[in-house]
Simulated scan of single mutants.
Amino acid sequence: MSKDAFAAAALALTAAAENGSNMCLSFLNALPVTHAAISTLGAPFGSETICASDSQAARLEELQIDFGAGPCWDALRTRAPVVDADLSEPTESAWSLLREAIRDTGILSLYSFPLAIGELNVGALDLYATTRAALNLPLIARASALADLAATPVARQVIRRLPHLDTDDTNPATYSRREVHQATGMIIAQMRVNADDAQALLRAHAFTLGRPVREVAADVVARRIKFTRDDVVDRD
């Protein structure tokens, strides 16, 4: 994949996230893989397939979710890509039966990439191919970079469906909404993201803690919580 192709894929991924189209197709169009799927995994968002390039990708993803183990789970746990470049080769793993089930569908290589925003676990991107070693090291690195770009849009998509987290809107004395706007501005500066992504990060962290957004915003404004690219939340 050339630099131009990578840039085009990044733009397509951003556009898909904004217009609600299938984000998985951005990976399928940019990389020599056959299927792509994105799922949230475990806490805090639960385990659910968010998008799939096609029905087979969706079925493959459900296999991993139902099994409760596999490359996507390993990728998120280790925060590193998991590569199985040749499923026809026997190997010892904790998910050998799952590996056989995936191979039986005609998939010969698969690649899983973690989706995370700092400390916040989101899920994983899975790429499946019907050829062995479909991705070389440079392509794996670029696919990983694209997966990083997808993490925040995926979190935003899930958060839109969550119950409203502000539980005390009837009491304006508790926390001013001004603090939410101030916290959003601080997260924009700290993370260098746009306002929508900053609000998504704020809501995601509040959801993780089980606290109202305004309460967490107050901690951000008071600098008790700081968002950084390496470590989303630092408590002073």
Rank of each mutant, 00 (worst) to 15 (best):
D197F: 04
L115F: 02
V158Y: 01
I225V: 12
A204T: 10
A145I: 11
D169H: 13
T208Y: 12
S96G: 06
S39K: 08
A183I: 08
T91S: 09
S112R: 04
G20E: 05
S93G: 07
A9K: 01
N194L: 13
A124P: 05
T40P: 06
G68M: 02
F113S: 06
P90V: 04
G42A: 06
A189H: 11
T130C: 13
R160V: 14
R77K: 07
L146D: 07
L209Y: 08
A16P: 06
A101D: 03
C72A: 12
P71Y: 00
G123L: 03
A129D: 02
Q56W: 07
H181F: 15
W73L: 14
H35E: 09
R192W: 13
H35N: 09
L135S: 05
R99E: 01
T49Y: 02
T91D: 09
A124Q: 02
L60C: 01
A101P: 02
E61H: 04
D84Q: 10
R161D: 15
L149N: 11
A173N: 13
F227C: 07
S47R: 03
D66Y: 06
V83S: 00
G210Q: 08
D4T: 10
E89H: 08
D4R: 11
F207D: 14
Q190R: 09
V158F: 03
D148W: 05
S93I: 06
G46F: 05
S109Q: 02
R235M: 14
T167F: 05
G68P: 02
F67C: 09
T130H: 10
L201K: 06
A52H: 01
T105H: 04
T170P: 12
I225P: 02
R77D: 07
G68L: 01
F27H: 06
V33R: 04
R177C: 15
V82W: 00
V232E: 13
L60K: 07
L120T: 05
A195C: 10
T130D: 14
L41F: 04
S2G: 15
T184L: 13
T130G: 11
A222W: 03
